[in-house]
């Protein structure tokens, strides 16, 4: 077959393809199944996601504990216990993530300060501890992104909202631990 013949077949092919029916009715009416599905919330997907997020939080707790252990072992000295800062609270207000909650200004400020200091402070940790922190934060941030996506479909799901808040708190907690541990290390180096 020469180029000319091939072009003819090619043109005919596209012409015929353009004439194929675009509108084809399914053999059965699909509406009853759709009506049933849209009448109830997508509970199964949410619960799956909830379980995944719960697992992520469990991983995170393990990661945080590991981080503290490694940092303390490196320095032969116990880190000061992490204290709760009463200023770092969540303030449920309307119209942000999900449809119910947003982060309070106290959290945003603390998050911003800790995040900007994090990489600098991480240099004072051992490579293993550093890797643990990165993994923990990545786990939490993935969880936060997943929960936010789930909330986009179910903005009023109280469990997801609660899980999101606790995930944000965990992120802050890990960053705060890094800050406190490296503060301890700095203190020792001063001697």
């Amino acid at each position: 077959m020469n180029d000319g013949e091939r072009d003819i077949i090619d043109d005919e092919l596209m012409t015929r393809a353009g004439r194929l029916a675009q509108d084809i009715q399914p053999q059965s009416d699909l509406w009853p199944g759709i009506a049933e599905a849209i009448a109830k919330p997508p509970a199964v997907a949410s619960w799956n996601r909830f379980i995944v997020q719960a697992a992520a939080v469990l991983l995170l707790v393990g990661g945080s504990s590991g981080l503290t252990y490694l940092a303390v072992t490196d320095d032969d000295r116990a880190a000061s216990p992490v204290t709760q800062n009463p200023g770092l609270v969540f303030q449920p207000v309307s119209g942000s993530f999900g449809s119910q909650y947003t982060l309070g200004p106290g959290f945003k400020d603390a998050h911003s300060v800790l995040a900007s200091q994090l990489e600098q402070e991480m240099q004072r940790l051992s490579p293993e501890a550093r890797r643990n922190v990165h993994e923990s934060l990545a786990t939490i941030r993935t969880a936060i992104a997943d929960i936010n996506r789930a909330l986009a479909n179910e903005p009023d799901n109280a469990l997801l909202q609660k899980l999101l808040l606790s995930s944000y708190q965990e992120e802050l907690s890990v960053m705060r631990q890094v800050s406190e541990i490296t503060g301890t290390v700095m203190f020792r180096e001063d001697f």
Binding site: D23, I24, L30, I34, A37
Partner: peptide, 30 residues
Amino acid sequence: VGKVYGLCLRMTGNASEAEDCTQEAFIQAW
């Protein structure tokens, strides 16, 4: 539904699969 099913049918090449995709598409659209 005709155009959505038609597209699903041509993309999957399978009537049963196309029906599932069409249903899922409308549920997602909702």
